[in-house]
Structure formats: C-alpha cells, structure tokens
Computed example of a mutant assay.
Amino acid sequence: MKTIQKALDILELFLDRDDEIGLAEIASLTGLNVSTAHRIVATLMKRGYLNQRQKRQKYSLSTKLLQFSHVLSKRMKIRDLAFPILDGLNKMVSESVNIAILDQNEAVYIEHIESNQNLRMFTQVGNRVPLHSTGVGKVFLAHMNDEQLEDFLNGKPLPSYTKNTITDVDKLKHELIIISEEGVGIDDEEREIGVKCIASPIKNSNGGVVAAISVSGPSARLSNKRVQEIKPLIKSCALEISRAMGYQGE
C-alpha cells in the first residue's frame, strides 16, 4: 500500500508542472531517497505512465493517462444525456430513478433522482451492486455474449441476499433470455426485501449495452400491475437515451 501511495505522489507532482522533472528533484519533492524514487519511476515508465528523454535524464507524463480521461468522459456523456430523460421518467412514475454502468462484474450507480414520495428508495451514487440480484445487473448479464456470461459465472456460487435471490444458474440463464427478449429486467425483492426494481438497457451506436436505467420503489407500491404499467415507460426512456447515444435500432 505504501508503494502505491509513493507512486501516486510521484504522478501528482506533474499535475502542477508543465516541464519535465529530474530524478533528484522527484526524490526531494516526495521525501523519498533516490534509489526508491528511481525504482518507482522505472516501474511507472515500464507501465507507460512516464516518459524519459535519455539525453536530459528527466521525466514527463505520457499520454496513457488520457485513456482514463476518455473513459471518464464517456461515462459523463451518458449521465449528461440521460439526466433530463431520467428527470421526466421520475415525474411520470413518482418513484426513484437511477442510471448504472457495468464495471468489473458489478453495476455502479452514476446518477440517482429521488422520488417525491414520503417512503422512497435512496441509492448512493457510486454504490456497487451485484449483477445477478439487481434489475440493472441482470440487464447487463442478459446482453453479455456466451463467453462473457460463462466467465462471470465461472463455477462460482451465486450469493443469496434474500429468499427471492436467484442462486440457481439454469434458472438465472432462463430469466436472462426473457430479459433479452423483453428489454426489461426485474428485481423482485432479490437484493433487499421490500424493494422492487425495473430496469432497461441503454445502447450505443454499435448496439452495445453501455448503461442501464432503473425505477426502484417499495414493493407495497410496485404491485405486479404497476410494474406492467412502468415497463413500456422505462423502455421508451431507455430507447430515447440510446437514440441520443447514436443507436439506430428499435
């Protein structure tokens, strides 16, 4: 952990510098001895985060960090495009609405708009949730190819969170087929008793699923009849966001 902190300290030196930095100065500014600084700098160079001009013996940031910026900007684009549509959905259904992305076999919420109801669901932006027991998560699973899905399952047991959590692989796969066909995933108190969720995928110009939106609320309000009423609304909103992302399909 300390080595990681030292590596980050070195990278952050370049945030306020437009010029290159020599090894002795790096060591001085970070409080490291020269040999430790050299070892960490060598690793950062090997991984492509720093460049060195041999004649000058000084270091500068590489363009690799732009890859992180590109990923972040794509996520921000989805959120910015989706927000006004999510806001409209929130007003239509009077329930909390969310948008999530897939990250390392988990769904991560990147936007949340609360319901105006006294009893409402609150989702913290940045929260990570499992895929097999959530509406947004099952939407992501339903649109994985066979290899990706098998890699996710990989013989691992599916954790149970409530009595409704699907832990049988064959049963989960059957539900994923239905989700893929209908374009809607349901969390029927599978992550938390008393909470239901309806989710639908957002697709990019290539037809790939890049995010999912969801409506969540207490089971007492989200009856089966109400869920059926919300399904076409959330599908329509997801398609509208997908269109804004360049998707041309139906």
Rank of each mutant, 00 (worst) to 15 (best):
K173P: 09
K173C: 13
H174K: 15
H174L: 15
H174R: 15
H174V: 14
H174I: 13
L176E: 14
L176A: 09
I177S: 11
I177Q: 13
I178F: 14
I178H: 14
S180N: 14
E181N: 13
E182H: 09
G183V: 10
V184F: 10
G185S: 04
I186V: 12
I186K: 05
D187P: 10
D188K: 13
E189M: 08
E189Y: 09
E190A: 15
E190P: 06
R191F: 15
R191G: 12
E192Y: 11
E192W: 08
V195P: 06
V195T: 13
K196L: 00
C197V: 09
A199C: 12
P201D: 06
I202R: 09
N204R: 12
G207M: 14
G208Q: 10
G208E: 10
V209S: 01
V209H: 00
V209M: 07
V210K: 03
V210R: 07
V210G: 04
A211H: 00
A211M: 05
I213G: 01
I213L: 05
S214D: 03
S214R: 06
S214F: 02
S214Q: 01
V215Q: 01
V215G: 03
G217W: 04
G217F: 00
G217N: 02
P218T: 03
P218H: 07
P218V: 13
